[in-house]
Measured scan of single mutants.
Amino acid sequence: TTYYDVLGVKPNATQEELKKAYRKLALKYHPDKNPNEGEKFKQISQAYEVLSDAKKRELYDKGGE
Protein backbone atom coordinates (compact mmCIF):
# COMPACT_ATOMS: atom_id res chain seq x y z
CA THR A 1 0.00 0.00 0.00
CA THR A 2 1.40 3.37 -0.98
CA TYR A 3 0.82 6.66 0.78
CA TYR A 4 -1.26 7.65 -2.23
CA ASP A 5 -3.49 4.61 -1.66
CA VAL A 6 -3.83 5.44 2.04
CA LEU A 7 -5.15 8.89 1.15
CA GLY A 8 -7.13 7.63 -1.84
CA VAL A 9 -5.50 9.99 -4.34
CA LYS A 10 -3.55 9.58 -7.56
CA PRO A 11 0.24 10.07 -7.61
CA ASN A 12 -0.21 13.28 -9.60
CA ALA A 13 -2.59 14.80 -7.02
CA THR A 14 -2.22 18.49 -6.28
CA GLN A 15 -1.49 19.84 -2.80
CA GLU A 16 -5.12 20.95 -2.58
CA GLU A 17 -6.36 17.44 -3.44
CA LEU A 18 -4.03 15.95 -0.83
CA LYS A 19 -5.24 18.36 1.83
CA LYS A 20 -8.89 17.68 1.01
CA ALA A 21 -8.42 13.90 1.11
CA TYR A 22 -6.46 14.11 4.36
CA ARG A 23 -9.06 16.25 6.11
CA LYS A 24 -11.90 13.97 5.04
CA LEU A 25 -10.11 10.82 6.24
CA ALA A 26 -8.76 12.44 9.40
CA LEU A 27 -12.27 13.37 10.47
CA LYS A 28 -13.59 9.92 9.64
CA TYR A 29 -10.85 7.99 11.46
CA HIS A 30 -10.01 10.40 14.29
CA PRO A 31 -9.60 8.47 17.57
CA ASP A 32 -12.25 10.63 19.27
CA LYS A 33 -14.86 9.48 16.74
CA ASN A 34 -13.45 6.05 16.00
CA PRO A 35 -11.48 4.71 18.99
CA ASN A 36 -10.72 1.40 17.24
CA GLU A 37 -9.11 3.06 14.23
CA GLY A 38 -6.08 4.66 15.91
CA GLU A 39 -3.62 2.81 13.68
CA LYS A 40 -5.46 3.87 10.51
CA PHE A 41 -5.38 7.48 11.71
CA LYS A 42 -1.60 7.24 12.23
CA GLN A 43 -1.16 5.87 8.69
CA ILE A 44 -3.22 8.72 7.26
CA SER A 45 -1.23 11.31 9.21
CA GLN A 46 2.10 9.78 8.17
CA ALA A 47 1.07 9.68 4.51
CA TYR A 48 -0.04 13.30 4.57
CA GLU A 49 3.10 14.42 6.39
CA VAL A 50 5.29 12.97 3.63
CA LEU A 51 3.16 13.88 0.62
CA SER A 52 2.38 17.43 1.73
CA ASP A 53 6.09 18.32 1.91
CA ALA A 54 7.52 18.83 -1.59
CA LYS A 55 11.00 17.54 -0.73
CA LYS A 56 9.76 14.50 1.18
CA ARG A 57 7.28 13.73 -1.60
CA GLU A 58 9.99 13.89 -4.26
CA LEU A 59 12.17 11.54 -2.21
CA TYR A 60 9.21 9.18 -1.64
CA ASP A 61 8.36 9.17 -5.35
CA LYS A 62 11.95 8.16 -6.13
CA GLY A 63 11.59 5.11 -3.90
CA GLY A 64 12.67 6.47 -0.55
CA GLU A 65 10.60 7.03 2.53
Score class of each variant (00 low, 15 high):
Leu51Thr: 01
Pro11Arg: 10
Lys40Asp: 04
Asp61Ile: 02
Thr2Arg: 05
Lys19Tyr: 15
Gln46Thr: 10
Asp5Gln: 08
Pro35Thr: 08
His30Thr: 06
Asn34Ile: 05
Ala26Phe: 14
Pro11Asn: 08
Lys55His: 12
Tyr4Thr: 01
Lys19Val: 14
Glu16Val: 08
Thr14Leu: 04
Ala26Pro: 00
Gly38Glu: 12
Leu25Ser: 02
Ala21Tyr: 02
Ala47Gln: 01
Glu49Pro: 01
Asp53His: 05
Tyr4His: 02
Lys56Phe: 07
Asn12Asp: 13
Leu51Trp: 00
Glu17Val: 05
Arg23Thr: 13
Glu58Lys: 07
Pro35Cys: 07
Tyr29Val: 04
Glu49His: 09
Glu65Tyr: 15
Glu65Trp: 13
Glu65Ile: 14
Gly64Ile: 15
Glu58Tyr: 09
Ala26Asp: 02
Leu51Gln: 00
His30Gln: 07
Lys33Cys: 13
Pro11Ser: 11
Lys62Met: 10
Glu65Lys: 09
Glu37Trp: 12
Lys28Thr: 08
Asp61Gly: 03
Leu25Glu: 03
Tyr3Gln: 02
Glu65Asp: 12
Lys40Asn: 07
Asp61Tyr: 02
Tyr48Gly: 01
Arg23Ala: 15
Tyr29Glu: 02
Glu16Gln: 10
Leu25Gly: 02
Glu49Gln: 09
Leu51Cys: 01
Tyr4Lys: 00
His30Leu: 06
His30Asp: 11
Lys40Met: 13
Lys20Glu: 15
Lys28Glu: 09
Lys55Gln: 11
Gln15Gly: 08
Glu39Met: 09
Lys62His: 11
Asn36Arg: 09
Asn34Trp: 07
Leu18Val: 11
Lys28Asp: 07
Phe41Met: 06
Tyr60Met: 03
Glu17His: 04
Tyr22Ser: 00
Asp61Glu: 03
Glu49Lys: 11
Glu58Asp: 12
Asp61Met: 03
Glu37Asn: 14
Glu37His: 14
Asn36Gln: 13
Leu59Gly: 06
Ser45Lys: 15
Asp32His: 10
Glu17Arg: 04
Gln46Ile: 14
Ala21Pro: 00
Tyr4Asn: 01
Glu65Met: 15
Lys56Met: 12
Glu39Trp: 13
Asp61Val: 02
Asp53Arg: 04
Gly64Cys: 15
Leu59Arg: 08
Phe41Asp: 01
Glu37Ser: 11
Ala21Asn: 04
Lys19Asp: 15
Ile44Tyr: 03
Leu18Met: 06
Tyr60Cys: 03
Leu51Ser: 00
Ala47Lys: 01
Gln15His: 09
Pro11Asp: 06
